[in-house]
């Protein structure tokens, strides 16, 4: 009895989570001009629209540029931070909390602050500004993910490398980072996903030239409800799933070879 209830409850929760996706995704293939059911027919015209209409095409390129920039910056900074916070560090707890703060600080608050700051620094309405803003919210994911995999590294392995003649920098390069790679890779995927999906900060700090795909969807849905939004959403989900799948496949391969988690 309890078992049945559990299963039912679980199913309901899953249903609640994915029903918006199920509702919107088929509309990406509608041949009609409106984002409504029933669909008059099946076509790829809205995908076509995405890659031909200037606003959509530019927003996709922007998202990729900003996403890649954010991924690189956040991964490098977040990994460095995780390395620095490793083990017992003076005020380590305090620093760790600070790095995770962007996860809980309301994005609007961050956005207002950043806009003011960026205007002063002269990076408002620039790619650099948007990438910096996205990096701030992406770093916590990288820090958490890399810290997790650093924790799993046996310090004696690094000591062994030192005793075998490797300088601390070589140990980092040849032992620590390779062993932390699963965490770094999933941190990078999370950073990319965060950037792709970020709207609030983008509204504050991006100019008309840095419209991202998410931002473009946001304004489109308010101006004209076009099925291009559904097509964009479809791209989003496929992209995210591919990234996640790639991460999992890589991890599995490595696990099979080396027995590492």
């Amino acid at each position: 009895m309890l078992k049945t209830l559990q299963v039912l409850f679980g199913a309901a929760a899953v249903f609640f989570l994915i029903v918006p996706l199920i509702a919107i995704l088929p509309l990406a293939f509608t041949s009609g001009a409106f984002l409504t059911y029933p669909m008059p027919g099946i076509s790829m015209r809205w995908f076509n629209e995405l890659v031909t209409a200037d606003a959509w095409r530019r927003s996709i390129v922007n998202s990729l540029v900003i996403g890649c920039g954010t991924t690189m910056l956040a991964t490098v900074l977040g990994t460095t931070a995780a390395l620095g916070l490793r083990g017992r560090v003076v005020l380590g707890g305090l620093f760790r909390t600070m790095f995770l703060l962007p996860m809980v600080v309301p994005a609007v608050v961050l956005g207002v602050g950043m806009q003011i700051l960026f205007v002063r620094l002269g990076v408002a309405n620039s790619y650099l500004g948007v990438i910096a803003a996205h990096t701030v919210v992406a770093i916590p994911f990288v820090v958490v993910s890399v810290s997790g995999s650093l924790e799993g590294i046996d310090r004696r392995v690094e000591r062994a490398a030192l005793s075998l003649g490797a300088s601390p920098f070589t140990v980092l390069q040849r032992v620590t980072l390779p062993l932390a790679m699963p965490g770094i890779a999933s941190g990078a995927v999370l950073a990319f996903a965060t950037s792709l999906d970020e709207v609030v900060l983008t509204l504050f700090v991006a100019g008309p030239n840095q419209r991202t795909l998410a931002r473009q969807m946001f304004s489109t849905i308010r101006e004209n409800i076009s099925p291009a939004i559904a097509a964009a959403a479809f791209l989003f989900i496929v992209g995210t799933l591919l990234a996640a799948a790639a991460a999992i496949v890589l991890k599995k391969q490595r696990q099979r070879r080396t027995g590492l988690a």
Partner: peptide
């Protein structure tokens, strides 16, 4: 001298091989 300049081969209890 730091460990990497000491020219000593260390065998640890848990072997500490490079798993990767």
């Amino acid at each position: 001298l730091p460990p990497y300049r000491r020219d000593m081969g260390v065998v640890f209890q848990n072997y500490a091989l490079f798993p990767h």
